[in-house]
Simulated assay, not measured.
Amino acid sequence: MLLIRPITQADYPALMQIAIESGAGFTSLPVNEQKLKQKIAHSEHSFGIDTEQPGNQGYLFVLEDTETGEILGTSGIEASVGLTTPLYHFHKSTVVHHSNELNVYNPVEVLTMCNDYTGVSEICTLFLREPYRSGMYGRFLSKVRFMFMADHPKRFSKIVIAEMRGMADENALPPFWQWLQSYFFSIDFPTADHMIGIGNKGFIADLMPRHPIYVSLLPKSAQDVIGQVHVNTAPALKLLENEGFIHRGYVDLFDAGPTVEAQLKQIKSVRSSHRIKVAIGAPVEGPTLAISNPQVAAFRATISNQAQLDGDVLIITQAIADALNINAGDEVRYLNLDRGAK
């Protein structure tokens, strides 16, 4: 059975392996023992505290195959970003150079560094190991975050963002970074990527250009990748676009990948998932459902086509109830994963 649950320190070896497999550019999982163990400890603390407002909490989930004990992927939520470490973006906008005397009207795109998303919630750290990138694993891993947020909205901001990994060349180097490195930095991308991953972002404020950058003055290779996603990230972006996330011109400083946003209450999986009481019964084949309990520290979610709606009750098997640590008469949240599947 597939089970999504909060990460624990026992999952460290699996998390390190995922960090290695995710490669350069996946800054939320640095290949650094101290930082990964801190991330796990921070997640355990976040799940364990009682709070009704977003703060410096980070929730990290793992997808486990309960039959083998293998960890297949991760998924995370940051409750409120940019509070302790600045969150930087470029914002792509348009300025107009206009002269009535010369009858010239030239709209020009510019990139301006900003901290506009300070305080919002962020979904992050979505990674599914390559052998399992089929079926509904990725959809389940992505959507379960919204089910958790739907049950605990006071823990999160009204605005939710996701930073998408940007384009890279055959050497895993972002063309956009290569321009930045040439003019503003003297370190290579893996070094900068690692520093960001371990939270050392002071060099950004020290070395990044402080004035708007005219896009037309950049090399074409850099211009072409602004707002474009890495080929491995395209499926994740599609999932989020189906949830209602949109791009408003904000891109990553180093790889120019897009940041997308949505209002929490308008996210499709928040609106389409429902709380319901359960009854225990025999297996009955039905739609593929993501089912979660409403707990925080003891949060559990699974995926099954062996549950069926019966009026205002969801009939589940004893195996599902055991996986979710619930009993007959308890409430769960469910989401139909078949709807909108592509």
Rank of each mutant, 00 (worst) to 15 (best):
S134W: 04
G135S: 08
M136F: 14
Y137D: 09
G138F: 01
G138P: 11
G138L: 02
G138K: 02
R139W: 00
R139M: 08
F140D: 11
S142G: 13
K143R: 15
V144T: 15
V144A: 00
V144I: 14
F146T: 00
M147Y: 02
F148P: 02
K154W: 00
F156K: 01
F156S: 01
S157F: 10
S157I: 03
S157D: 15
S157Y: 10
K158S: 15
K158G: 08
I159S: 05
V160N: 03
I161V: 15
E163M: 06
M164Y: 02
G166H: 02
M167D: 03
D169R: 11
D169A: 04
D169N: 15
E170L: 06
E170K: 14
N171W: 02
N171S: 11
A172H: 12
L173M: 14
L173N: 09
P174E: 08
P174M: 03
L180S: 07
S182L: 12
Y183R: 10
Y183W: 05
F184N: 06
F184C: 08
F184G: 09
S186L: 02
I187V: 14
D188R: 05
P190Q: 08
P190N: 08
T191N: 11
A192R: 01
I196W: 12
I198W: 13
I198S: 10
I198T: 14
I198Q: 04
G199N: 13
K201W: 01
K201D: 04
K201N: 10
G202Y: 03
I204C: 09
A205C: 01
A205F: 04
D206I: 05
D206L: 05
P209V: 07
H211W: 05
P212Q: 11
P212C: 09
I213V: 15
V215F: 11
V215Q: 10
V215W: 07
L218M: 10
P219W: 12
S221P: 03
A222T: 04
Q223H: 06
I226V: 13
G227L: 04
G227I: 08
H230P: 01
H230N: 15
H230K: 07
N232L: 13
T233Y: 06
T233S: 08
T233W: 09
A234G: 00
P235Q: 02
A236W: 00
A236E: 03
A236T: 11
L237Q: 14
K238W: 03
K238R: 14
L239C: 02
L239Q: 12
L240P: 06
E241T: 10
E241G: 01
N242G: 13
G244C: 06
F245Y: 13
F245E: 03
F245L: 05
I246W: 00
I246E: 02
H247W: 15
H247V: 01
G249C: 08
G249L: 07
Y250F: 13
Y250V: 00
D252H: 07
D252N: 07
D252I: 05
L253V: 14
D255V: 07
A256W: 03
P258T: 03
P258K: 04
P258V: 05
T259Y: 03
V260L: 05
E261M: 11
A262L: 01
